[in-house]
Computed example of a mutant assay.
Amino acid sequence: MFTPARKKLLLAVLVLSFGVQTGLVYSDERSEPLSAAAREGRALWQAYACQTCHQFYGQGGFLGPDLTNAASRVDSTRLISLLTVGSGQMPPLGFSDDESAAMAAFLREMDRPEIGRGELRMGTPGEGAGAQAAFERAIEAALGAGSSSDAGSGDGTDQDLAEVAAGFAAYRIRPCSACHFPFRDSPVGAPDLSLVAGSLAADSLDLVLADGRPLMGMPPPVPPLGEADRAALTAFLRFLEANREELEAATATLAAGRSLDWGALPWWEFP
């Protein structure tokens, strides 16, 4: 049993240990990896509790899409619209131009290649990529080199591939990848996009691209697809079907050997 003197000594040791630990923690040199503009965006992210619905690198809520790579797939016009008037379940936040710019800077700096992409990819964009990043790299490579198959509606000319590229761009700036997985149906029931062009008649596909399928869980595309956008996206979907085996193999190769450097993840950012 401790005597009063020993109890006082033990308490003094504990207090001293706490003081030393506090000093070490607050004297630790730490460089801020975000720019001043991005820090303003981070403050808005925290003030509006965005992590309640959205994720960064798997950390956060599940009501909205993962925003890890939002800067790569959402253009500035769409982002401003989301931050001011909202969309679907996304409430209108009424951000000013300066606030929108700060949030854009924050999202852009969180989407740096040295940190990762969506599925905690470490390394260069073409090596060790997660499935979605590898899928996009495979398509970029196929479009850059030309395709051995036609684009589904033409004869594989540069003009056809330009339309496919436009459709790919339309796909990337919308949150399609939040539900659709490369070369397989997703757990939420979203179909494999490389097969839809062959399973739907042309007019049915155009109707889906225009209005979605709300009763089956697919909302109308946001931002909406005009006639030219729908034609380009249809060409992209036909391109996926015509080159499915080649693209699937390239995606698997790019995703092979994926490794994680947990030390490179910005844990300081997760609330």
Rank of each mutant, 00 (worst) to 15 (best):
D66W: 01
A197M: 11
L63F: 14
E136C: 01
L240R: 00
F106S: 00
R213F: 14
A102S: 15
H180V: 02
G263Y: 11
F236Y: 13
P223F: 09
D206C: 00
D111K: 02
G144L: 08
S72P: 00
H180P: 03
N69R: 09
E163P: 00
T84Q: 13
W268D: 12
L254F: 11
L209S: 06
T234D: 11
A141R: 13
Y48K: 12
S186W: 13
A151M: 06
L200R: 11
A102E: 03
D98H: 07
S204Y: 03
G64S: 14
S199Y: 12
E32Y: 08
R184H: 12
T68R: 03
Q55M: 13
V188R: 07
F106D: 00
L120G: 00
Q132S: 03
E40F: 04
D158F: 07
A190N: 07
A249E: 15
D98K: 12
A141C: 01
S259M: 13
R172P: 06
S148N: 07
T124V: 05
G41L: 08
A264T: 14
G58K: 06
F168R: 01
F18D: 03
T3E: 13
D75H: 09
A43G: 01
L195N: 06
R121E: 15
P113H: 09
G128V: 04
R30T: 12
D28H: 15
S177T: 09
D111W: 06
S35Q: 08
R213N: 09
V25T: 14
A142N: 03
Y171F: 15
P182H: 10
E119S: 04
P220E: 15
L200G: 02
A129G: 05
G41H: 03
S186G: 15
P65E: 03
F236I: 00
S35N: 10
L207G: 01
Q59R: 13
L225N: 02
G128S: 03
I80M: 10
L260S: 02
D158M: 06
T77F: 14
D150P: 01
R172T: 12
E248R: 13
S186E: 09
F270H: 08
L93E: 02
V85W: 11
D229K: 01
P266A: 05
P182M: 05
T52G: 11
P221W: 06
F181S: 04
P221I: 03
L67K: 02
R244T: 04
A252S: 10
P33Q: 10
A134T: 05
V74A: 12
F106M: 02
G217Q: 10
P214G: 06
C176L: 02
K7P: 01
W267H: 13
G217E: 11
D229I: 01
G61R: 08
G19Y: 10
F168T: 00
A131K: 08
V13K: 04
A104R: 07
L205G: 08
R184S: 14
E127K: 07
F168E: 01
A141L: 11
L215F: 14
